[in-house]
Computed example of a mutant assay.
Amino acid sequence: MAIQPIDPVSDSRIEHKTAALNGYTYHYLYAEPKSGQYTQTVFLIHGWPDLSMGWRYQIPLLVNMGFRVLAPDMMGYGGTDAPKVPPNSISLYGLKRASDDIAALAKEVGASSIILGGHDWGGFVVWRAAQWYPDLVSHVISVCTPYTAPHKEYFSTEDLVKGQLPQFAYQLHLASGEVEKSVKDEQSISQFLRGMYGARGPNGELAFDPEKGVLAENLPKVGESRLLNGKVLDYYVKEYSKHGIHSTLNWYRQRRTNWEEDQALLDKKVIKQPVLFIQATYDSVLKPEMSKSMESFLPKMTRGEVAATHWALTQKPEEVNRIIRQWLEGQGLGSSRSSL
């Protein structure tokens, strides 16, 4: 039977909670089996431009398997704080800070060990959190996002674009401050989100190009998205309207800070925890070839693949869930006896 995704407006299977983590308030989704008994705790970390609700198909699966699940809105998103930069440090939007806040949330809910899943930026976060907190993170799941080891040398986004990753040029546009000029109210946020989630104009116009970024001139043309529509789209628009788009783009403005903090991990390049990596075949940014050499750093990695674009979690949820379920069961985790 197909899993019913979490309803963003009203769903008895989840609670909306907040927690003060290292001085800032986070909003997170909380779910546990009806019995109140759970085997392990799973944290799910979203990327851009997404929210905790991006895991709406996976949360029910995991609860049904006997897990307790927490999915936070990350810094700058939705119900979580969006500190301004400046005066605050851009490192608030970095991988080390996200890892620290995940550890603080685990402590808040009394979890001494967590299974950590991530997608997009959330995938980058979970790799680093597993390195910063190896005693806390027992298992790692990354959907779409390949592992990148810490580097001693600094490579700017411009360096990457000129080299092997021309499809990362959109990150230069997202960091530039230009996107905020055209995505600034509920209507344009709605057009932007629909476009990012695959909607096109009447003549096939795209709202996003990996080598250019957000195509502002096409936003008014986009129609409906099959992946983000109805009450879910309304929820996303409302949540993104709380802070605007600017704070979410800070994640693209701290590459140097991430590199600086990575220097403490140069002797921790190998991730020893069991890892599940799910590749999306048609991801136009995080392309399959980017994950080719990961085995040398991830000795306990299992690979899975779905024929999907970057939005695999919601485009092919049953396939993604099947891979996650099989892997967790293969690790001896969870229980199928729980019910929603």
Rank of each mutant, 00 (worst) to 15 (best):
P8Y: 00
V9Y: 07
S12P: 15
S12F: 14
A20H: 04
N22P: 06
Y28R: 07
L29W: 05
Y38G: 01
L44Y: 01
L51G: 00
S52E: 00
W55R: 00
R56P: 00
I59Y: 01
V63Y: 00
N64P: 00
G66K: 03
F67I: 08
F67C: 02
D73L: 02
G78E: 01
G79M: 00
S91D: 13
Y93I: 08
Y93S: 03
G94T: 05
A98G: 02
L105F: 07
L105R: 04
A106L: 10
K107S: 15
K107H: 14
L116S: 08
G117K: 10
V125N: 14
Y133M: 12
D135K: 11
L136Y: 14
S138Q: 10
H139T: 11
I141C: 09
T148Q: 09
A149Q: 09
E153C: 04
E153R: 13
F155E: 10
S156G: 13
E158Q: 15
D159P: 05
G163T: 11
P166C: 15
Q167F: 09
F168L: 14
Y170P: 10
Y170V: 09
L172P: 12
A175C: 07
A175S: 14
E178I: 06
K181A: 14
V183S: 07
I189N: 02
G195D: 06
M196L: 14
G198K: 04
G198C: 06
G198H: 09
G204N: 12
L206S: 13
G213T: 08
G213K: 09
E217C: 05
E217A: 15
E217G: 13
L219C: 06
P220N: 06
P220W: 05
E224C: 04
L228M: 05
V237C: 02
E239H: 07
Y240D: 00
H243C: 03
L249G: 02
L249F: 07
E261A: 12
L265Q: 03
D267F: 01
I278G: 05
Q279W: 00
Y282W: 10
D283G: 02
L286Y: 07
M290K: 03
S291C: 03
M294N: 11
E295L: 06
E295S: 12
F297L: 01
R303S: 11
G304T: 05
G304S: 08
V320M: 09
W327I: 09
L328F: 01
Q331L: 13
